[in-house]
Design a protein around this nucleic acid. Structure first.
Lengths: 326, 326
DNA sequence: TTGAAAGCGCTAACAC
DNA sequence: GTGTTAGCGCTTTCAA
């Protein structure tokens, strides 16, 4: 077994309490004793057992993050930022890779996080009943998901994003604009991207063209959908709710010599730094990832500290990034 | 506070010991008692406190992963796979985003993981003295880093990768082949990519052209390096030690109208599924990410269980993926 | 087949 | 200023 507090106490010839006081910097200790204890700690390379501390009712300083796959660069970047911020505040991150549509796994994660006494949860996924989240009794904040009345939601301005994306296609002269994304309502903030699209389309008297598409589908499946769409009707603009699919279409339309496709305007969504660098031509609606991460962490820590939140819904502005695809 | 074992015991009208036995499925219990206990657990929605269990000397079933930024799609994918595998074996992942060249932060992570009593560590980074890893006293496995005599290393066949990449450029008719990557030895397995390049170059009587480049540099810095190189000498082949930089060059040479650059052959390294989909034209040396993850997890669990390892060095084969860039 | 009691490593009254 | 003691929620001898 490893070095424990009592070992340090013995070596420093003081009581365990004193060592504890030194570690926690709590109560009165003479400078002399403090020095003795510190030197003993150093000598033994002592590292307090956080399990034991937490068992006392102290916090674990563990945060669980439940997100869809890191394969999505957006979430990879978001998690990366979140971990960084948490680390600065001396929290640790337990990573939970939720699986699309697996309420079973999500439930297991929730139980695990509870069992591990995490101080709070950041969730970017949602396959469970809202009640199950409430039952955890843990502070939770969510990204882009409605997890219940008590769970603050952070999101980018999805409505504005959908609207601006569509509007900028219209401004580029497009008349036949297709929407690629989730077209069945999920009762989550992301639904608003579609709403923004629809409102813009209607405002300009155009016709909706809805193509169901999901980030997690395979590239080939998506290409099949492109092929089918393009063989059935002509479009001159395409709005995708993620950059990855948008880029796929961009490539497909540019390099696959489908009749009259080279000039279809394209815009995506997310604006991760990696996609920006990989294909600077691709226009996109950029989410403010850094701020999202900041806000999520801030809100969660406030909830952990039982501070009152001013709001339960936080909508961060998006940015239009124009590339050659527009 | 939440429901505890004694609450369950009380409700089921048995002793805490009995409940513990039921939970751990240990010793003799009558079917009747077991049922009673289970029903009490369900009724109270009881979740054993893993902190308390671990304090008994049980394992925490927590694994720490220290990796360079998830912004690198390769590590995003690797971590994703690792988490998945660990989850299946009922382990949880504490994610540690190491920072390039920060031994300070890496040391903090190590201490934190020790304090949190993780059962083991998977490391894909290396800014510390080898002794510091040994001092943790924890089972460790590493990816592509030499962390000490007791730490098994998993890597893709870096030498073969460098050799095959260079060889395939030569086969495509290239005579002036530049290597873009880390050109100062780091004493890690990845150095072998350069070695493979050099050996191939020498075997064919060509001249080495070494361009220092690091994944984590900004895109603009990289482009400056391209510009500088191309204005100084003509090259007809380029081998990059990561796909991301390779893709940047591919774009740069194709679309920036630099004199005579459209035809420079390019090959990268990594072969993540996301890069494959984003730019299928880009040739690359694909690392077997799935197998790497598998092996890392397997080896770590073996170390945790004090099983003897057959080897301390595990080299997995790479695959050449040919795109139009070759 | 079950229970009582001690103890994992640490903290927090409460004494001195 | 410092030490004694009890106890966090659980497991595990040992005894019944």
């Amino acid at each position: 077994m490893s070095v424990k507090l009592t070992d340090v106490a013995k070596l420093a010839q003081v009581s365990p309490t004193t060592v504890s006081r030194v570690i926690n910097n709590y109560g009165y200790i003479s400078e002399k004793t403090r020095k003795k204890v510190f030197s003993a700690m150093k000598q033994l390379n002592y590292q307090p057992n956080s399990l034991a501390r937490s068992l006392q009712g102290k916090k674990t300083r563990l945060i669980g993050a439940i997100v869809p796959s890191l394969t999505n660069p957006f979430f990879a970047e978001l998690v990366s930022r979140i971990e960084e911020l948490l680390n600065r505040k001396d929290y640790k991150l337990i990573l939970c890779n939720a699986v699309q549509d697996s309420s079973h796994k999500e439930r297991e994660y929730l139980n695990m996080l509870k069992a591990n006494q995490v101080d709070g949860i950041i969730s970017g996924t949602h396959n469970l009943d809202i009640t199950e989240y409430q039952e955890t009794g843990l502070p939770i904040v969510s990204f882009d998901r409605n997890l219940g009345p008590d769970v603050p939601v952070v999101s980018s301005d999805n409505y504005q994003g959908g609207w601006v994306a569509t509007k900028s296609l219209i401004n580029s002269g497009c008349k036949k604009i297709a929407f690629f994304g989730n077209i069945k309502g999920s009762n989550n903030p992301t639904d608003l991207r579609l709403k923004g699209y629809q409102d813009a389309i209607n405002e300009y008297g155009l016709k909706e063209i809805l193509v169901p598409m999901n980030f997690y589908e395979s590239a080939n499946l998506k290409k099949m959908a492109f092929q089918k769409l393009l063989s059935q009707q002509k479009i001159d603009g395409a709005f995708f709710t993620d950059d990855f699919s948008a880029n796929l279409f961009w490539q497909y339309s540019r390099f696959n010599h489908f009749k009259d496709c080279e000039n279809i305007k394209v815009i995506g969504y997310d604006g991760t730094s990696i996609m920006r660098q990989l294909n600077p031509d691709l226009s996109t609606i950029a989410q403010p990832i850094e701020e999202i991460a900041n806000l999520l962490v801030d809100l969660l820590i406030k909830r952990i500290n039982h501070e009152e939140l001013s709001d339960s819904n936080y909508v961060l502005p998006i940015t239009l990034i124009k590339g050659n695809s527009l």
